[in-house]
Design a protein around this nucleic acid. Structure first.
Lengths: 334, 334
DNA sequence: GTGAAAGCGCTAACAT
DNA sequence: ATGTTAGCGCTTTCAC
């Protein structure tokens, strides 16, 4: 591995000067800079980040923890992050928690050992013990939470207004003349699902003659199907469904087809998340967009700013969701 | 940041001894080891990987480059890799090329600067210039290619037998009595798509009275739809379609529904990749499974072995695909 | 089984 | 504008 020493030898300049060239210090003459760059090219020089980090205390690495990478929403966020971070000289490293508290802690520890300069994280559904997270915060590594945030004070966060999203989705069903709603909720202890549920309830509040059911599904899809089947049998008057996610929406679509219940004829359906397949189903699933790319960009920007002006106090940003009306929730075919 | 020095101070032992404890050197007495561990726990010690790497020349980091992370296949591979690597003490860092040669090179360079111990990569569709890759290989960082491999000699690789997959898919359509086949191909210059196409052609070879068409789609989905529409108009006798991927299969499904052509009644369809949504469509899409998890595991194992026995010569592994028959290709409804 | 000391490649005072 | 030098936190001979 050819290093800075080699370049110093070739050019006859000191290590310091060579180093300065690569750190864009203004205190180098153009001639010297050119000479160094030429030598660097000739030996195919790659700066050793490890050494630089060790000395400077800055690794130029940002750690990102997401529950799952194979997910339209999170991968959209990652793309947003990459976009912002790419020309700032930082590298990002991605870890998946696979919705496990343990793996999340492992990832966080790895990041610490790697001396990352900052951490971006959306916590797992399972995470209820925030001690690891608080350890990180105390260790003075800046953290920005996105989408799924822990219930802690004084943290940086970028979230979606899930309450509003739930409200909008429900309101849309009501506008389409649904009278008997079903909300298929995720685990309401997870912040985002709880908020969507609240939005659902508040949209119905004060509306007359609207009935509703809520089922909270947290198990396997096979079990969920059975529960839903029972729900439809018990409650055949259901004419509007708000599913907490598009994937669940797709399952509902298939289940109702099996039960020979027409969507949107008999029952209207709306999902959440604007997954890539939601516009490709039959009928196309109405949904709520989560502005993932924007969320990624904001999250990264927030961290980058914190990295610049060390102490600026915790910042919070809440994005507004966007209703996307497609075929599954419309009485009039499009 | 509490370091090894701190522990040395607390325990009264030398730096060397403390270091040995964390490196599982056998030359430490159990008593000493216990004392060190206790001290480490008391100050919440995290080893500094940067410093260790710098000194030892081993970063314990493996870099992974994939075209896209939001993709059932690649994320499956990543999971496979994680599984193998997790209890080996290595960290993995993931970069996306987004199918761009330039971003791929950037990722590779970042890895080099980070002094990764090894690289796992599936090259982008765009990559035709292998100079960056050859640079890495020459730099003695072990590389294992998976799925999409460059046309180079003496490389480690784990691939799917895409030829066989194409053959199987086509044979299946023939067995279902299709007489006029359409193969929707990806860019045949990309190794995997070229192989699938060859498999398609060979399966038809020597079969009597089978007609076929191949369209190679490499542009946007809107353009692709137009091309396909024309193809069906020009060639109304098509009764079997082999699409190079499940996403394209889904598009075909929707397009044919618009054109009021029944699947599988009038036309049989098979995709490739076993994407997560392919079993959730109406009808469910028949496909070819790529054994992604197994591929990830093998890829990681191959690298880990190379990392152990430095020079063992390039290894090559080819996996067999698995036919998954669902509704879209069956005459008899399931 | 343990310790002393050199040094990995680079940066950042400080000096010139 | 350039050079000298100390040292980041750890590993690793070599000595005892």
């Amino acid at each position: 591995m050819a290093g800075i020493k080699e370049i110093s030898k070739i050019t006859g300049l000191s290590l310091a000067t060579v180093s300065r060239v690569f750190n864009n210090s203004s205190l180098v003459s153009p001639k010297t800079r050119a000479k160094v760059m030429k030598a660097a090219a000739s030996i195919d020089y790659q700066p050793n980040i490890m050494a630089a980090s060790l000395r400077s205390g800055k690794s130029k690495i940002i750690g990102v923890v997401v529950p799952e990478v194979n997910n339209y929403f999170f991968s959209g966020i990652i793309n947003g992050i990459e976009q912002i971070v790419s020309d700032s000289g930082y590298n990002i490293i991605i870890s998946q928690s696979h919705e496990s508290q343990e793996k999340e802690n492992e990832a966080l520890n790895s990041f610490l050992k790697l001396q990352v300069d900052g951490i971006l994280i959306s916590i797992s559904k399972e995470t209820t013990d925030f001690s690891s997270i608080q350890k990180i915060i105390k260790s003075n590594v800046p953290v920005v939470f996105f989408d799924r945030v822990p219930d802690l004070k004084n943290i940086n966060s970028v979230t979606l207004n899930d309450y509003k999203g739930g409200y909008m989705a429900t309101e849309h069903l009501l506008n389409e003349n649904c009278k008997n709603l079903l909300h298929i909720s995720g685990d309401s202890k997870v912040s985002i699902f709880g908020e969507r549920q609240k939005g659902f309830l508040d949209a119905i509040l004060n509306k007359n003659s609207i009935e509703y059911t809520i089922v909270e599904l947290t198990s396997s899809i096979e079990m969920d199907r059975e529960i839903l089947k029972k729900t439809f049998e018990t409650n055949p008057k259901i004419d509007g469904i708000f599913a907490y996610g598009d994937e669940m929406g797709l399952h509902v679509l298939n289940l109702l087809k099996e039960l020979h219940i027409d969507i949107p004829g008999k029952v209207k359906l709306i999902g959440f998340g604007n997954a890539n397949f939601s516009g490709l189903t039959q009928p196309k699933i109405s949904t709520v967009d989560q502005e993932c790319s924007q969320m990624g960009e904001l999250t990264a920007t927030l961290l980058l700013n914190t990295l610049k002006n060390s102490k600026s106090g915790p910042k919070t940003k809440v994005l507004s969701p966007r209703l996307i009306v497609r075929e599954s929730s419309l009485s009039t075919k499009v």
